[in-house]
């Protein structure tokens, strides 16, 4: 496709819940400092795919996977690799804002503490400020860092969650429909923020909103059920977003994007 550095790559990835094959034979790449959108109709396995990248799927007791996910060339499902290490490097922002019921400051500081921060209070203050600035939230909260994260508005809470994720400086940030619970203005703020964040991070976003995918992403993976009457999803087409939205190769992608299907 081009010479961009591949950060994440799935190889023949299958994910099961019990006997149910949720996603089947997924092959695609995520490029460094790019925003990759995963789009597709409900129930085709977008979130399952996203949650495979930081091994959050394992929290579902019946979940298991086959195939490989390479992170900078290393298989994150290798038995020698601890999911905790994976999640340290591949952060996540959830659909519904979920700040901790702690102060705004603690929301950021906690991730640093558990990941071995051993510095002074002023160094911590700097890191918290950096993270909040990085999430375009600093000006709104700098005077109330000791207030509960739950006291913020929905959009602010989601940016706090982004700040929390970037505070520990992951390489990749996974976003599971990060704006779907927000109003249009808060959504635009999150989208602007994503464009800024891609300077330093690689972003994978799941979205239902095709306009959003078209607006923010560089690459798009189109997911769909594998066939009529099938319940397993797969990536049917992966390309630059501009290609997917203007001249898709797959008829199903075209139908979905133009609103004829899904």
């Amino acid at each position: 496709m081009d010479n961009n550095h591949v950060v994440l790559e799935t190889k023949n990835l299958n994910v099961f819940y019990g006997n149910f094959l949720a996603i089947k034979d997924v092959n695609f790449q995520v490029f460094r400092n790019q925003i990759t959108a995963i789009i597709g109709p409900s129930g085709c396995g977008k979130s399952t795919l996203l949650r495979s990248f930081n091994r959050m799927n394992e929290l579902v007791p019946s979940a298991r996977s086959e195939g490989k996910i390479l992170f900078n060339g290393e298989d994150i499902y290798d038995p020698a690799i601890d999911p905790v290490e994976v999640r340290r490097k591949i952060g996540m922002v959830f659909q519904k804002p979920n700040p901790f019921p702690k102060s705004i400051y603690e929301n950021i500081a906690w991730g640093l503490k558990i990941n071995g921060f051993r510095g002074s209070k002023s160094e911590m203050d700097d890191l918290v400020e950096q993270a909040l600035r990085g999430a375009a939230l600093w000006d709104e909260v700098k005077d109330k860092l000791d207030q509960s994260g739950l006291s913020l508005s929905g959009g602010q809470q989601q940016r706090l969650c982004i700040a929390r994720a970037i505070a520990i400086k992951p390489e990749v940030i996974l976003m599971d429909e990060p704006a779907s619970a927000l109003d249009p203005i808060a959504t635009l703020k999150i989208e602007d923020l994503m464009r800024e964040l891609k300077e330093n991070y690689t972003i994978v976003i799941v979205t239902h909103n095709m306009q959003e995918a078209a607006r923010v992403s560089d690459y798009t993976a189109m997911m769909m059920l594998t066939g009529e009457g099938e319940r397993s999803g797969t990536v049917i087409e992966f390309d630059r977003t501009s290609v997917i939205f203007t001249r898709p190769k797959d008829k199903r992608t075209e139908d979905y994007i133009t609103g004829r299907f899904g």
Binding site: M56, E85, R87, R88, G91, F94, P99, G111, I114, R164
Partner: peptide, 13 residues
């Protein structure tokens, strides 16, 4: 559960 997931996603044990 969302709170547990938030914490786990930060690389917590």
């Amino acid at each position: 559960q969302s709170i547990r997931q938030a914490a786990l996603a930060l690389g917590a044990t």
